[in-house]
Design a protein around this nucleic acid. Structure first.
Lengths: 339, 339
DNA sequence: ATGAAAGCGCTAACAG
DNA sequence: CTGTTAGCGCTTTCAT
């Protein structure tokens, strides 16, 4: 990798000033068409690539954004990444990946990257601000942050998400429509908004149908496969057992189904199971999982698009963009009793 | 986000020069302990964060690396990402994500980012250099690139990977040991090294056991679920049908199993299936998939570590680091005839 | 339409 | 030990 050509090299070769080269390369109309073409040719001949660091220092932006998630190994994020990357790329931005693992220090670190010029903006998918973060006063300028998938209440930040409550309500209604009455719920980690809202949808649907939620029919998980297994075991250790389970995500649904199989109960004949997210393997699973499909790539793309408008200072009051989720009915749900 | 404090602000406040501040903040022993502490205190008081862009311009490095994959939505990569990110982070590097989608222009674009100072090095997981890339002459300085997971022959680049041939041989041997003789193979996209090598391992094992590979027992897929389904259908449309299938990756194995189920054949009673990769859902699948486990996070970590040494100019001849893969035996394989 | 010159914020000679 | 100074490569006034 020989020494790269700088703007000065082009200037010398072309017999113009560096200013003119800079202008020509950015298609400024201030430069005569003839010189512009000539300069571009010279630049190409020298295989010139502008040094982005120098440009960024000058324009005081990094042209990159930070995408922060809690657990990078969650397959759910993949399509979201893709949506973000595509939109960012189209706008000339690079995407930096951040993985917090729920660690306060790392959360803070990534947050700091906004301040040290590492990134111009951030898409937060962790559902929380760093612990010691002082909330911004209403109306005061926010750093360019868009919250996606999750919710952070009271921070006055724009959000991009599905309506978790109504989507969960819809999923539960599906089970009710099939004729189930003893419907349990395996929730996510509960203080978190997303889990709370999904549970809320479940409760609303049950209430609207006049169905009681027996004690013990709401079990907490942590979105992991193992927690789905464990929750399912708990569910079937009580006196009253459900004929259907609505799980707050697909992985717990997989765990629950595995556990059911181990207990000798078949899905959907003995127990119907609904998931949430429609991750890649929901369809390949046996039985194919009935689940709520989130338009993940779209959420990523929209979040990035919103971040772009925020970074461009088009400061409207932060809004919440809701993208529609749909219920995808597959083989893991049926009428009770295998009818 | 008020105007950030610069190094000059600290210098003024502390009554020293900017050089001293810079030294103090990087713990240079050239600065008296007393002044160093005082300066650090002042920096903290001003909530100072060094501007990384300015630093990077000065030191002529971007302190970020580029991780380029062919298809970002492949869940296989997640753990690899994680391994890369952790190691990079520990060394003070950020990770930029690149997704080529097999598009030549994007491949070239990401490659260019090495030249324009966007990234200091690159971890290539696409299995190929950009189409129009002139190979480097042996012994000439390479750009800092490490190839992971895949192979790029003749480019003289360091590699981090498993031994695909012997891992595939081992997987096939497992089927042979169970008593299978009619063993088919669903391969990946064939001109690619990885697919070729996995097929090679299969062939070697068959040959070593004195087993013939009937015509039509090697079918090509493209690593997708759908292609696994299709390949399986092809396999069972011939006169002679296999009792076991070794698939070049897990997704095709899932596809094959789904197809088998559709055809009314059960796994492993009628047909045994082995996958490759041990992705997250291999265990949750029904039946749990027997497959080759790649230490994905380790591959990512090692690739990043190797890239660090290359970037530090510790220019040893490019080496190939092989990490061990293991065969994980689960429920999708059994003796033929369900014995 | 073009050039000269300043400077983004930092680090690293070089002097003392 | 500390300060002075000179850039890194680019963009952008301000002149002309």
């Amino acid at each position: 990798m020989a020494s790269r050509a700088r703007i000065r090299d082009i200037a010398e070769r072309a017999g113009v000033s560096t200013a003119t080269v800079s202008r020509a390369l950015s298609d400024s109309s201030l430069v005569a068409k003839a010189t512009r073409d000539m300069i571009k040719k010279t630049a190409e001949a020298l295989d010139y690539r502008p040094n982005v660091t120098a440009r960024n220092l000058r324009i005081q932006r990094s042209m990159s954004v930070l995408l922060v998630v809690r657990d990078m190994s969650n397959p759910f994020y993949l399509e979201v990444f893709k949506g973000v990357e595509a939109t960012a790329r189209a706008a000339g931005y690079s995407v930096l990946m951040g993985n917090t693992e729920n660690d306060a220090e790392r959360e803070r670190d990534y947050f700091n990257m906004l301040q040290d010029g590492h990134a111009d903006g951030m898409i937060l998918m962790t559902g929380k601000l760093p612990a010691d973060n002082e909330p911004w006063e209403a109306g005061s300028p926010h750093p360019p942050i868009v919250v996606a998938l999750e919710m952070i209440e009271g921070a006055g930040l724009p959000h991009v998400q599905i309506d978790n409550v109504s989507a969960s309500r819809r999923a539960t209604e599906h089970l009710i429509e099939l004729g189930h009455t003893r419907i349990a719920h395996i929730a996510g980690p509960i203080p978190e908004q997303m889990s709370v809202r999904r549970r809320k949808g479940y409760r609303e649907a049950m209430k609207a149908a006049g169905l009681a939620i027996p004690k013990g029919f709401e079990v907490k998980g942590d979105f992991s496969l193992a927690s789905g297994r464990a929750a399912c075991k708990t569910l079937f250790s009580g006196a009253e057992t459900p004929t259907a389970i609505f799980c707050a995500n697909d992985e717990m649904a997989f765990g629950a189904i595995n556990e059911l199989r181990q207990m000798g109960r078949s899905v959907p004949e003995d127990v119907s199971v609904v998931g949430f997210d429609d991750i890649m393997f929901a369809e390949a699973f046996y039985p194919p999982l009935t689940t709520v499909s989130q338009p993940r790539a779209e959420i990523g793309a929209r979040a990035m698009a919103e971040l772009l408008t925020v970074m461009n200072g088009e400061a409207m009051p932060p809004r919440t963009i809701e993208v529609p989720a749909t219920l995808t009915i597959r083989g893991s749900t049926a009428a009770p009793g295998g009818a």
